[in-house]
Simulated scan of single mutants.
Amino acid sequence: MHHDSLDRRRLLQWGAAASAGLVSPMLRAQTWPSKSIRFVVPFAPGGSSEIVVRTTAFELSRSIGQSVYVENKPGGAGNVAMQEVARADDQHTIILGHIGTLAVNPYMFDKLPYDPIKDFKPISLLAKVPSLYLVRPDLPVRNLKELIDYARKNPAKLTYGSAGNGSAGHLAMEYLKMASDTFMLHVPYRGTGPQLTDLLAGRLDVASVGAPAVMQFIKTGKLRCLATGTAQRIAQLPDVPTVAEQGFPNFEMTQWYGILAPSSLSQPAADKLALAAAAAIKQPATHEKLAGDSAIGVGGTPAEFAKFIAQEQQRWKVVVARAKIKPD
């Protein structure tokens, strides 16, 4: 009898502790995830985000023991998806965070339907996609210094294209203009495709485009790459110097992607997800797939990702304000 009541008392104490939240996080982490995970992407399928997400989702589902399915939800420069996921409290929804939604939109929009810091938990930086600075091959410039000299000697004559207002390519060019104190006229397009058509046809002079979309044209000489926006040279273009190397120290322009969870995700679950995401991106198979598309796998801790987001916000706040970049 005594033995039985002791067990019962222990069970009651344990129940009280569990309801007070003392036991539950550990147990929650052991049982999380209890169903498949929805990975929301704030873009239409295609483009640089696609390869990063598909590769990560596949490896992530293997390491976390539940399927991870991708749901594309474009609209409002990523704000539609961010707003929806900020409010998701099913503990099984995550989102692809990137330069636009986290570091640019806060300064480009007068009012955001989400708070990029308060509403989300950074999980892990996944990959960086190098932004390349390109010119049409018949433009008489061979490097960044020559482009800048040409722009100064021919004011308002050079045109540069982008995939739209506030797009990564728009930011990359405005950042270069700011750093080099030059002027080039912006021609926004509806997407990377139409912009490339005009650049390849010589109707545009300059553009900054994510590496995956243009590597084939550089290799065949249809476009000339003057510089990479990365901190170090990239393996696919070992002879092309970085912007930083060509006289602009600390200049870095990459499109980057990471995983965010709603701030309501329990901390043990977030930690478990972060470990799995970093492991997924560091798999040799993942690295190979990303490298094939000229993306650089990163994978890090939530603290590292949070610090990176803060640095990027400082960088882009200045550019957006100076260039008076407004959404379409």
Results as ranks from 00 to 15, higher is better:
G100D: 14
G100Q: 14
G100E: 15
L102K: 05
V104G: 06
V104H: 00
V104Y: 00
N105V: 13
Y107G: 12
M108E: 13
M108K: 11
F109V: 09
P113F: 04
P113K: 06
K118A: 14
K118P: 13
P122S: 09
P122T: 08
P122I: 04
S124T: 09
L126T: 10
L126D: 08
A127G: 09
V129L: 02
S131C: 12
L132P: 10
Y133T: 04
Y133R: 02
L134Y: 04
V135E: 05
K145Q: 15
K145R: 15
E146D: 08
L147H: 01
L147A: 02
D149F: 11
Y150K: 06
Y150M: 10
Y150H: 14
L158Y: 05
L158P: 07
Y160L: 03
G161M: 07
S162Q: 02
G169T: 04
G169Q: 05
H170S: 08
A172H: 11
M173T: 00
Y175W: 12
Y175E: 09
Y175A: 08
K177Y: 06
M178I: 11
S180M: 04
T182V: 15
L185T: 15
V187C: 06
R190L: 10
T192V: 15
T192M: 10
G193I: 08
P194G: 02
L200E: 10
L200G: 04
